Amino acid sequence: MSASPVTFTSAGSSAGANYGSGMPSNLQHALLEVHQPPKTGSSSQPGAKMFDITFQFNPKELSLTKNAKWNRESHANAKKSAPPEFKGPDPCKLTLEMFLDATDKMDDKVVKKVEQLFSCCVATEESRQGGKGSPPWVIFKWGSMTGFPAYVSSVTAKYTLFTPGGVPVRAVCTLNLEEISGEQGGQNPTSRALAARNEHVLVAGDTLQSVAYRAYGDAELWREIAEANEIDDPMRLRPGSRLLVPALDEVVAK
């Protein structure tokens, strides 16, 4: 049995609906944060950050799919089928489009961006040297929305415009992301996928302890916030910086 895809749209993404128009300056660009796979074998925390892939235009919709495994026992003499038995959830899957356009300069910017996306489908050099090839981890982010740790299972690039010399200057890329780890208990499968973590903008006087207290009611959980943001020195927090705040279920599960 599979759940129907859940489609998310942004009321502020009118530019995404009309790719040819410029985006208002107050809109935040979506991005894919690309990380090394963790060396420790963790299924919840990515490794070191490699680079960001910023969306030139924000996506006009996000399609989220959640599947579950069910089993029905069949008996030859039974008049009715047995009730379905839950066998576990499948990873969440996120599908989105990225529109690329280089008609302002008619250069190879589109080709380079597509190559960058394709690189996410290949095992990282560091993991291959370690003897076990693993794909980079990616996290989709858009303003205060943070997605689940995932890997890019496929990228399809459709070139739609070319220079007289044959260089692609416009493309639509379809990205399929699949969750790294399974479902964590106590979280709604449709809401957790893109809201398992919140974001906090630091202001003067903020400390990791105060952020942890506001988020969890327990200042002692500040170390989980530091780990999620790779903060080595909790005394040096810059006002205006954004902190990822893991969901309480994620923190308690450790």
Score class of each variant (00 low, 15 high):
T54Y: 13
I53Y: 13
P37S: 08
M50L: 15
F55H: 10
T40Y: 07
M23L: 02
F51P: 01
E61Y: 11
L31N: 07
S44R: 15
T40S: 15
K39T: 13
L27E: 15
Q28R: 13
S63Q: 15
S21W: 05
S63C: 01
H29R: 15
T40R: 08
K66Q: 13
P24M: 01
N26E: 07
S42I: 03
L27M: 09
H35N: 14
T54F: 09
G41Y: 11
N26P: 00
E33K: 14
T65M: 07
T54M: 11
T65W: 00
N67H: 11
N26M: 01
T40Q: 10
L64S: 08
N67S: 11
M23C: 04
F55C: 05
H35Y: 15
A48T: 14
N26K: 03
E33T: 15
K69P: 00
K39R: 14
A30E: 11
H35V: 02
S25H: 12
M23A: 14
S25A: 14
Q45V: 14
M23I: 06
L62C: 03
V34Q: 12
K69V: 00
E61H: 08
F57S: 11
L27F: 02
S44P: 01
F55A: 05
P59C: 02
I53Q: 15
P38V: 06
A48E: 15
L27D: 08
E61N: 12
F55G: 04
N67I: 00
A68G: 09
S25R: 14
H35L: 02
G22M: 05
K69E: 06
G41M: 07
T65N: 07
L64F: 03
T65C: 01
N58Y: 03
Q28L: 10
G47Y: 10
P37H: 08
D52R: 10
L62S: 04
L32H: 05
S42Q: 05
L64E: 09
G20L: 08
V34R: 11
K60R: 14
A68S: 08
S43L: 06
P38K: 05
H35T: 02
F55W: 09
E33W: 02
G20Q: 13
F51D: 01
L31M: 14
P59L: 05
P37G: 06
Q28S: 12
M23Y: 00
P37Y: 05
V34H: 08
A30H: 09
S44L: 13
P24C: 00
M23N: 06
N67Q: 11
L31A: 12
Q28N: 12
M50Q: 12
S43T: 14
N58K: 01
N58S: 05
L31C: 11
L32E: 05
Q56R: 11
F57Q: 13
H29K: 15
Q45N: 08
P38L: 03
I53F: 13
K60V: 00
K66Y: 04
K39C: 01
L32P: 06
F57N: 14
P24T: 07
N26R: 06
M50S: 06
F55D: 07
G20F: 08
F57W: 12
K69D: 04
I53T: 10
L31V: 01
G41W: 13
F55T: 05
F51G: 00
T40W: 05
K49R: 11
T40V: 03
G41F: 12
P59H: 09
P38Q: 07
P59M: 10
